[in-house]
Design a protein around this nucleic acid. Structure first.
Length: 856
DNA sequence: CGCAGCAGGGTTTTT
DNA sequence: CCCTGCTGCG
């Protein structure tokens, strides 16, 4: 809230003064080193600006310089800037960089995510619409917990509703700014499922309100509603934010778009007169209102990968139509990747027909070829990744410069296993996040409940953790009492003696818990009403409050007392949580509990990416957006995975997957690896995997296959990988001066005349030949309506009829001889467990494995 | 009420 | 395979 005070009423600059920015002199440090497009994007002034920023084109630089330029030129106070980024980490970086550019004069800027900005507004204005400032933010697990209760109460499960599908449906609607009553007007009244869903939706929102809680989508949607329902509030923010900048605009959804629209309206004439402090003449335009804020958006429709979350690509495609007078600046020079990487990216994305043409180029030379590798299994693939990372490391590349990407979080398992075995330091971003772990949520529930003692989900959680004999029955009696007397849950517990259904033992537990919560609450708010007069107490540090809770509940001790080693890890997580809280106290002294809870609720996966950690980073390609690494491994480049099976039926699904692939490729600066496996275990059983169609879209000359799909699925060669060890001088990272322009901007692979440059043995040639043959067959099969080539037909090997039993000796093309220890599964999914003389145990899909029976 | 043991079901991506 | 939820027993 201090930001408002920083808005100096006496020195307010004139909004929308279009100074002679174009005449900036060349020595301007803010423009130095920028290319003409970048410079234009920095100095352009007008109502709206769209910066079409291809991958790696320096958009962050442009954004930060643009903001610094505005501030330094006294066109805006820092407090008049609202910059929206995709993650908190990006926000922190941007703030820091602007601070550096300006020498620290960036106080008062709002640089944050949509969600953080909205929470800030909602906390400040919550009383307006019946919420309390300490409202809880429900994460998706909380939402589902609430929905679970509702679905149970309405018996909706028999109509096929689950917490997960109801939650996603509600989320979709909220992203479109539709509430339950809006749904009612559009639904099919004759459909009982629709009517029931409307009921669930209504109850869900009612319960949220009663709990003084918002879900993720509400944060945006309710802020929009707030502005629409309260023009006086809207006017305050419209007046304040004179320059609004939005990064990753291609991934905004309708609610976010609407928020931007509300913020970039001229103030309502009626409200303009009521502003405090009153608007000065310089702020007003000829119509007597404060003119619309200037809007800058940055994005790349080729990197739109969040349609599933409601992102609407039209927001960026139709920007010029939407915001009249908009200028468009295209940034097409890439400063990140080598030409080979860029050519691959361009070739892939070129297959999306419905895009605006863009022509990314670089001046940095071809660089190394892309390396391809096909493993026999995901295990084999992971082993390649681990070995290759070790090679790169030996060549002098830091672990922190390496990232491994995958489509689904479940793919981490095999990768982690091999990285651990190879003693490669790594960290996994995203996945089951720290704050989603049960024990962390348990501890957090106490803090959340202190901030919002009306929240039933949180309260219910803390009752049961740790176990203290208070079960569902006791909970229900207390909840009924709470509701009947219109109390908070904490007050209800303090009066447990008035609940006759509770026995003496239970009553004791409840009262003890209530007492502990009361003391913790007292600490958190800073003394409260019973405080000694004149001695104003400060709110205790969050860490102290958490310490009290952990001590009194003995959560850590109880975990330590168990024998399960998993519980040791859980205890450590709680200690970690305490450390996080202490760190927060140091970083934000006196900020208080609610600030801590807000921060925790809104952390994103990359927010805890520590660039200095010196570890390999594992993450999904979604999480990778906006990041870059010297060496990138994209794993699991298979049909069914990338593109994901779930997306192939969805309209536009494949195109979105292709954009995802594009995002992945363009993260790489110097080295790119594309890996896949010919078999993949999903759920326990193993099935055959086909190379992704995206691989076929990359011109062949760009990729050096260490082991091609053909070699693995047909009886190809087993060339020693040692023979193909990275060439070149020992330095490893020297870029080759040669440029092979024939592959630059190559379209889809067919017709590419680029000859294989690798010293290939005939083996490799024929393997590639075979793969090409299979590609053609696959294409034909697809064209003839045969569906997608994700079965193992098409001339691959077929061992289905190979009779194998435990005890048999076999020979594998790569692993050599080994002994079968067991056969599991049936038919095409028959799996041989084999102990090889060379590499130990492997599981092989009999149908596909390059094996034959041998006799000793 | 709490725990252990079992059956069944689920596969995308996330602020 | 893994996590969840349910059941049945102490």
């Amino acid at each position: 809230m201090s930001d408002f005070e920083l808005l100096d009423p006496s020195g307010l600059p004139i909004g929308g003064s279009f100074g002679a920015a174009g005449a900036a002199n060349a020595a301007d440090p803010l423009l130095e080193g920028l290319n003409p497009s970048q410079e234009r994007a920095v100095v352009s002034r007008g109502p709206a600006l769209l910066i079409v920023a291809g991958a790696g084109s320096g958009k962050t630089r442009v954004l930060t310089h643009r903001i610094a330029h505005l501030i330094r030129g006294r066109e805006a106070w820092p407090s008049q800037i609202l910059a929206i980024t995709f993650t908190n980490k990006a926000a922190a970086e941007m703030r820091e960089r602007i601070g550096d550019l300006l020498g620290g004069a960036a106080e008062g800027m709002w640089v944050s995510t949509f969600h953080s900005a909205c929470v800030r507004i909602l906390r400040r204005e919550s009383e307006r619409f019946g919420y309390v400032s300490g409202f809880t933010i429900y994460d998706s697990a909380d939402s589902r917990a609430l929905l679970k209760r509702i679905i149970k109460d309405t018996d909706a499960a028999s109509y096929g509703f689950t917490p997960a599908n109801a939650s996603s449906k509600i989320s979709k609607l909220k992203n479109e700014l539709l509430d339950a009553s809006a749904f009612r007007t559009t639904m099919n009244d004759a459909d009982p499922r629709d009517r029931l869903f409307a009921e669930i939706f209504t109850m869900y929102d009612q319960e949220l309100r009663r709990a003084n809680a918002f879900d993720f989508d509400d944060l945006i949607g309710q802020t929009v509603q707030l502005f629409r329902a309260h023009p006086d509030v809207a006017a305050v923010y419209q007046r304040r934010f004179r320059h609004i900048l939005v990064d990753e605009y291609q991934d905004t959804n309708h609610a976010q778009y609407s928020l931007i629209r509300e913020l970039t309206r001229p103030t309502d004439p009626e409200q303009t007169m009521r502003l405090t402090p009153p608007a000065r003449a310089a702020e007003l335009d000829d119509n007597g209102v404060i003119p619309a804020a200037s809007l800058t958006v940055v994005g790349d429709s080729d990197q739109s990968i969040y349609a599933f979350r409601g992102a609407d690509i039209r927001n960026i495609v139709e920007f010029e139509r939407d915001f009249v007078g908009a200028e468009v600046v295209k940034l097409e020079q890439n400063y990140r990747s080598t030409q080979n990487i860029l050519s691959a990216a361009n070739a892939v994305i070129g297959n999306n027909f419905d895009r605006q043409e863009k022509n990314l180029w670089t001046a940095s030379g071809d660089g190394e070829k892309i390396v391809g590798f096909t493993g026999y299994s995901q295990h084999d693939e992971a082993r390649f990744v681990a070995e290759e990372i070790e090679d790169l490391h030996r060549q002098g590349l830091a672990y922190g410069d390496v990232a491994v990407f995958y489509r689904t979080n479940s793919q981490t398992r095999a990768l982690e296993e091999l990285l651990i075995r190879s003693a490669i330091p790594y960290r996994v971003l995203g996945g089951t996040k720290f704050y989603e772990r049960a024990e962390v949520k348990d501890a957090m529930a106490y803090l959340t409940s202190i901030a919002n003692p009306y929240d039933p989900i949180t309260w219910s959680r803390l009752l049961g953790a740790p176990k203290r004999g208070i079960g569902p029955m006791a909970e229900a009696h207390l909840a009924i009492f709470q509701e009947a007397h219109d109390l908070s849950f904490h007050e209800a517990m303090a009066r447990a003696a008035e609940v006759p259904q509770l026995g003496p033992k239970l009553r004791g537990s409840v009262l003890a818990l209530a007492d502990m919560l009361a003391r913790a609450t007292q600490m958190a708010v800073g003394g409260g009403t019973t405080d000694v007069e004149g001695d104003e107490a400060q709110p205790a540090p969050v860490g102290d409050v958490l310490k009290l809770i952990l001590d009194e509940t003995e959560m850590i001790e109880k975990l330590r007392a168990k024998r399960d080693p998993q519980d040791d890890a859980r205890a450590e997580n709680l200690e970690e949580l305490l450390a996080v809280a202490r760190e927060f106290d140091v970083k934000h002294p006196g900020a208080g509990l609610i600030a801590f809870l807000t921060e925790v609720s809104l952390v994103a996966a990359v927010d805890d990416l520590d660039d200095t950690s010196g570890t390999v980073s594992l993450m999904t390609m979604h999480t990778a957006k906006g990041l870059e690494f010297k060496a990138v491994f994209i794993t699991g480049v298979e049909e069914g995975l990338l593109p994901h099976q779930m997306s192939v039926d969805e309209t536009g699904g494949i195109n979105e997957e292709r954009r995802l692939m594009y995002v992945g490729i363009t993260r790489a600066r110097e080295r790119l690896y594309l890996t896949l496996a010919s078999t993949r275990a999903t759920f326990g059983d193993i099935s055959a995997a086909m190379p992704s169609r995206f691989l076929q879209e990359i011109p062949e000359g760009l990729v050096h296959w260490r082991q091609s799909p053909g070699e693995v699925t047909s009886r190809g060669g087993t060339q020693s990988r040692a023979l193909n060890a990275p060439r070149g001088t020992g330095g490893g990272y020297a870029q080759r001066p040669s440029r092979d322009s024939s592959v630059a901007f190559g379209g889809p692979s067919q017709g590419s005349s680029a000859a294989l440059q690798e010293p290939s043995n005939g083996n490799m040639q024929s393997a590639l030949e075979k793969w090409r043959e299979r590609k053609r067959l696959a294409k034909e099969a697809q064209a003839s309506g045969g569906g997608f080539p994700n079965t193992i037909a098409l001339g691959a090997r077929d061992n289905s009829s190979l009779a194998l039993a435990a005890g048999d000796r076999i020979k594998h093309d790569q692993y050599g001889p080994g002994r079968v220890t067991a056969i599991t599964g049936e038919g095409t999914k028959r799996v041989a467990h084999v102990v090889f003389d060379s590499v130990g145990e492997r599981k092989l899909l009999v149908k596909l494995a390059p094996i034959e029976k041998i006799t000793e």
